[in-house]
Design a protein around this nucleic acid. Sequence first.
DNA 1: CCGAGAATCCACCGAACGGTGGATACCGCG
DNA 2: CGCGGTATCCACCGTTCGGTGGATTCTCGG
Lengths: 220, 220
Amino acid sequence: MPETPATPPPTPIRLLIVDDHPIVRDGIRGMFTGDPGFEVLGEAEDGARAVALAGTLNPDVILMDLRMPGMDGVAAIKELARAGNAARVLVLTTYDTDRDVLPAVEAGATGYLLKDTGRDELVRAVRTAARGEAVLSPSVATRLLGQVRTPADPLSARELEILHLIAEGGTNREVAARLFISEATVKSHVLHIYTKLGVNDRAAAVAAAFRRGLLTTDGG
Amino acid sequence: MPETPATPPPTPIRLLIVDDHPIVRDGIRGMFTGDPGFEVLGEAEDGARAVALAGTLNPDVILMDLRMPGMDGVAAIKELARAGNAARVLVLTTYDTDRDVLPAVEAGATGYLLKDTGRDELVRAVRTAARGEAVLSPSVATRLLGQVRTPADPLSARELEILHLIAEGGTNREVAARLFISEATVKSHVLHIYTKLGVNDRAAAVAAAFRRGLLTTDGG
DNA sequence: CCGAGAATCCACCGAACGGTGGATACCGCG
DNA sequence: CGCGGTATCCACCGTTCGGTGGATTCTCGG
């Protein structure tokens, strides 16, 4: 079957891959290598390296992890915006907790996907992001909808500090002694924590905190 | 400098890659492709597929994720042992909670690594595992040492049930009404939970449960 | 300047918790 | 059969928690 006159091949979408895990970087690169619609410009293992490379290489889309040592993904997204870099940032990460999703979206990410995304879906998502259109994984979309309905108040530094001590089993009295404040003050903070997390007791507060990424299994 | 008479090239270590995330499978494969010391025989996205392929392909080492839909990694390791398959299983996963590490090790895994393992370390680990020697990431080794010192008692089904209700903020009285038992019974279970988790109050119990994988952020 | 939020603090009081020291019944295993 | 673990249940009591309804001071942004 004769073809219509050949049109020039479209300019490939140029990618930068940012992830602290070598396996993941290799996996992502492997998904796009060999596809003429994409060109992998380079890789970075943290946010600072990503910002530097983006300034040099001018990618169309940056596939960005969030939790990385040194400068994390959110900080990098902010820095890219501050520097006026035109690249679209597509977050690709394991975590869909509130603590991860919202800051990234607020920082300016064009998309947010989880690492269980299949190859075809990822390719489509990168194309969508390159056009400047938003792309969200279903669980992230659900979580954002939830946020629109019931916006969560962030805990203050002091409240977070007290939440950690509560999770270790500290009574209000022990927490007070630890922080050199009165037990009444601790109770005030505790009640504020409950209000913000929408719970009524310590156990539920701790659970909600884990689910929101405020407390983590690696103690940090 | 003249070389000694050439010895035949060593037989490559034959690998099977098992992970439900396409990105990760690609990444792992990319790490070994092109290295003449290894041959990637195939890939599987869950435990059942892994067992079937291992029976057909007879790999030397299986790189196995644990949390997968359908048959998970631990069940697959057990099934491989039951079938007398000689392949060494090197667990490669994101999670190092007690709930993940111990069952895998008990099921017969030769090694346990986390996905932040770099390429060189992973290659070394695969070689080690192929020789039948154990290989553990530092955090997993630490956790196993902790288990040897203070073996953890598993929570009974009832205790787990109550733990979930506590994490939702249920008082002992509410939990009792929910389960059609007396408040005294709930308190007995609660105290047993504390003893087994090594804590003294509900909040610490919930935190410990999340850290051990007994409670998870996806409600399951 | 004003208002909101964060941090600090108080008193009071009923509810709930944690600890103690028991008890019985059932099941599975050696 | 005996033992250990699980599930169920009790009474008592001191401690802690959660709720209520305040208060003051400081900082920051509009």
